[in-house]
Every structure is written in structure tokens, then in C-alpha cells.
């Protein structure tokens, strides 16, 4: 089982990004995904900066992958994507069919990101013919679907699944951070930089529900599949994705590494995945969740 660091979903200051990734290059990870996947307006690091950072980190011996934007709107988004695709030697995570097409045009192998809609073996077969070598499973793809992929008899790519972090649930043209601050998106002032772990959204009963991250909506709860590693492995998952957070990411990585190396499932500190069991993503399964999540590891508050 391999460990990957998923692309940073939030908007952090340039110096903080460099500091984070230079430290991450020393953590026990197999793969690091780099790039802006949420909002094309975020420019603390431009595409060239991300590629330069990727080249620097590649010297650590980790596999480095460049992740593309999930929602492209303007021509300039496509130009940036072309630059990413033509980086010369690093594989790209395609988070949209535009990226698949640009990679396919150039006969470059790629990784399918979790925002591609791949729900059956025929879609898998076509994308593999296009050059897809690995698929990061979309959040809805659980144990049963993975088994159906295997039962189809098709040659399969590697499978990676989101094992730690808030689940990416939806994308929009609208920026919800700007909306919450009563700002127009075209004049947003890049205020999502003030919410380096997202902006909490609660129900009117003050129950934590979702997280606003610019144009993206995430779950409030952190998914934590560390206790399920043996089951994930048996189901055919080869890579576990951990999403970056501000607070002590090094411990998050270390906990997963220890769980893999020791074979001992740790106590769950986030939330189990309803999706993995074929249920609603937010569903709590009887007896399988931690009664008292250790919030300290999840967020600094």
C-alpha cells in the first residue's frame, strides 16, 4: 500500500506553500500531487511556479504528479493547462475531460483525478486506452463498485482512494467564500486565503455540516480510513490519498505510515466513509465510528 499527498485544496500564502512542501518531501510518502485544482484565480503560485516546485521536489525521490484544475471556464485556463501538460516529464492528474483530451492528443500517460466521472468498466477501458494509468476513485465509488470493476475482467489501472481529509463534494462557477463575505467574485480580494482550512458552514441548529472552500464545497467531517487499510488493500486499492491541512500534517502522514508498516489498525480519529459501504457519504455506521474524535489532530481549534 502506498501513501500519497493529494493536491492542496485550499489557498495558502506562497511562503507557507513552499515551507509545507519542502517539509513534505522528507515525510514517508510515495507520491506528492502538486497544483491548483479548485480556483484559477488563485495565483500565489502560478503554473510555472508549481512546475518549478515539482521539479525541485522530484529530487527527493518521491513520485511527483502535477494536478489540473477541476473546472475550466476561460481560454486562459486552457493555456495554463497546456503548460502543465507540456511540462516535459512529470505525469499529470487529469481532473477534467479537457485535460484528458490534451494529454491524449500528445499520447502522454496520465492519472485520472477524483472529479472525472468514471462509474463503470467501459469508461475505465476507454480512459485506459487514452493513457490513464491510475484512477483516483470518485468519492461515490465504494467497495461494491470496485468489486464490479474487478469482476468485469477488463485490464485495470491502479486505484487510489481518498483516505484522509474533507471530501470534495461539489464545484460551482460561484465563489461561496466571496458570497459569504458579500463580495463579487470578480473583486473577491482572494479572501479565501484567510481560511486556510476552509470556512465552516453549519445548519440553523448550529450542527457542523459542510465546508466552503471558494467555488468548492467539502464535507465538514474529515474522512479517516486508517483503520480500514487491510480491507482497502484486499479490495484492490493500491494507494491512499491524504489531503493537506494546516495542522500537523506530518503526524497525519506518520500515523498512516505506521498503520501500513505495522499492520495494526489505529483507532479512528475522523469519520468512517459511508460511501465505502454503499451508503450516504455522511452516514454513520453502527459500531464502526469513533465516539469521541480526537479533534486536536484534525484542526487547531
Amino acid at each position: 500500500m502506498q501513501l500519497t499527498l493529494g493536491p492542496l485544496q485550499y489557498f495558502w500564502r506562497r511562503d507557507d506553500v513552499f515551507k509545507f512542501y519542502r517539509a513534505a518531501a522528507q515525510w514517508p510518502l510515495d507520491t506528492i500531487y502538486l497544483g491548483e485544482t479548485v480556483c484559477s484565480k488563485r495565483r500565489e503560485l502560478g503554473t510555472r511556479d508549481w512546475i518549478a516546485l515539482a521539479n525541485e521536489l522530484a529530487e527527493s525521490g518521491r513520485e511527483i504528479v502535477l494536478s489540473s484544475l477541476a473546472l475550466l471556464e476561460a481560454e486562459s485556463d486552457l493555456s495554463a493547462l497546456t503548460r502543465l501538460v507540456e511540462n516535459g516529464h512529470l505525469r499529470v492528474e487529469a481532473n477534467d475531460m479537457s485535460a484528458v483530451q490534451l494529454l491524449r492528443d500528445r499520447k502522454l500517460p496520465f492519472i485520472g483525478g477524483p472529479s472525472l466521472n468514471v462509474y463503470n468498466h467501459v469508461a475505465l477501458r476507454l480512459l485506459c486506452a487514452d493513457g490513464m494509468q491510475r484512477l483516483v476513485l470518485g468519492i461515490e465509488l465504494g467497495r461494491e463498485l470496485l468489486q464490479e470493476f474487478k469482476d468485469s475482467g477488463e485490464p485495470l489501472p491502479e486505484f487510489e482512494t481518498i483516505a484522509w481529509g474533507r471530501l470534495p463534494l461539489a464545484y460551482s462557477a460561484r465563489c461561496y467564500t466571496a458570497r459569504a463575505l458579500d463580495l463579487a467574485k470578480d473583486d473577491c480580494g482572494f479572501r479565501c486565503i484567510d481560511y486556510p482550512d476552509g470556512l465552516p458552514l453549519k445548519t440553523r441548529e448550529s450542527r457542523p455540516f459542510l465546508t466552503i472552500n471558494g467555488i468548492q464545497i467539502q464535507s465538514n467531517e474529515h474522512c479517516d480510513l486508517a483503520p480500514d487499510i487491510a480491507e482497502l488493500h484486499a479490495a484492490g486499492v493500491q494507494l491512499l490519498r491524504l489531503y493537506p491541512q494546516t495542522n500537523d500534517m506530518e503526524s497525519v502522514v506518520a500515523r498512516f505510515r505506521e498503520a501500513i508498516d505495522s499492520g495494526r489498525p489505529p483507532q479512528r480519529i475522523g469519520k468512517e466513509s459511508g460511501y465505502w459501504h454503499g451508503q450516504a457519504g455522511m452516514e454513520r455506521l453502527p459500531g464502526s465510528g469513533a465516539a469521541d474524535p480526537v479533534q486536536a489532530v484534525i484542526s487547531p481549534q
Binding site: L71, L72, E73, D77, L78, L81, D96, M97, S98, A99, V100, Q101, L102, N117
Partner: peptide
Amino acid sequence: ASATTHAA
């Protein structure tokens, strides 16, 4: 299908 560009 969420296709928003000429490439897609």
C-alpha cells in the same frame, strides 16, 4: 458530462 471547454 460537465464539458465546459473546446478541448473537452
